[in-house]
Design a protein around this nucleic acid. Sequence first.
DNA 1: AATATTTTTTAGACTAGTCTAAACTTTTAT
DNA 2: ATAAAAGTTTAGACTAGTCTAAAAAATATT
Lengths: 217, 217
Amino acid sequence: MLSLTEENYLKAIYHLSDGGTKAVLTNELAESLDTKAASVTDMIKKLSVKNVISYEKYYGVKITKQGKAQALMIIRKHRLWETFLVKQLNFSWDEVHEVAEQLEHIQSPLLIEKLDEFLGYPSVDPHGEPIPDKNGKIKIQASVMLCDLAPGYKGSIVAVKDSDSHLLKYLDKIGATPGKKIKLLGKEEYDDSLEIELENTKVSISKIVSQKILVTA
Amino acid sequence: MLSLTEENYLKAIYHLSDGGTKAVLTNELAESLDTKAASVTDMIKKLSVKNVISYEKYYGVKITKQGKAQALMIIRKHRLWETFLVKQLNFSWDEVHEVAEQLEHIQSPLLIEKLDEFLGYPSVDPHGEPIPDKNGKIKIQASVMLCDLAPGYKGSIVAVKDSDSHLLKYLDKIGATPGKKIKLLGKEEYDDSLEIELENTKVSISKIVSQKILVTA
DNA sequence: AATATTTTTTAGACTAGTCTAAACTTTTAT
DNA sequence: ATAAAAGTTTAGACTAGTCTAAAAAATATT
């Protein structure tokens, strides 16, 4: 059993390693968890002993198979709760992150089973992110970052890769939410801002925003 | 802001003091929280500094107005979550306590507001216990312990004063749940066991069980 | 290849919460 | 009224998690 703090470290490692595909450095982790490198080193040792990560001094951390399974369960809980908050309790999608960060640590397999059933076994959360099933399996929807496409592209929004509430409020305002049809009309070479069309309305978005939007490939 | 542990102490103090009407002793608290008296003394000092209890050495602890308000909010959350678990997620009433003990510590006033609304502003939880409203007000339903009544009594079950899952399973089996009509047919002088009628079925219950059942006055 | 810079780890200290053992109050029993 | 028993508090130690400052290792620079 992991403590709340250990769960947060493990989740951060999972995300920073892109789902376990690459090693994570001490400083990255410290930055992401808003803590000091020394604290990270300490925690890394504990998590190694618990076999959820493997660790070589000075070379960073890799998540183990077991650790990945545990991280996926935490992510499953987070995304199911976000879905509940938005779909059932009428939270707006920019309000759910902090609450879900707390709810994801509730320990009750039965609760999550029943919540999943109650929600109708959703496959994505309100931000378009996939929800791991009870075995930790994720249905991957092929997608690309909007910033990597050329004018002329037509498709729809798959997900938004950020939980910052200001960004989400803004995207909601311009109508850029998962599932929406989107066209890429033009790109401004000077600052890489994009001219896009959403529901027959043209908007210009900055490069930084276009990097957060995933669209169908 | 109270820590999770502080919240648990405060809630225990509230309950052991019968809602703030009497002082609570160190050992009672230690017993109820399954901890040692020395730990209780330490925590009592912290809670005094935070002005949620007042404390006189060797004479026990009293909850302050402010502390009572905070305890009621925790109880409100606990009972709303229990209601959610039973009514929406189809938990049985003997399964909800442990999960609600965790959920009651989630910090989000908005969440509780929305949950309350979602549930239709319930006034009692699945065990018949009243749910404090957002101002901490409780609607008290007059009730008496079944064990204090004389044969001939007719009324209905108001609440069950225990969260032990074995007791609740048993009560569920014999049909003794909040709202049910109940008649007291007889009392066995030797062991104070009671002969009762529930939905046209006669059952005999022990004294200890009859002390847990509250019925209409 | 040697030095400077950056990153990581260690060492030691601090807080929250817990414990045991000993000391101190209060209550009960003679 | 005093001794014994019961209950409470203090003192000191321990774990989890955090921090600062210093040491050690890796990387970058010249």
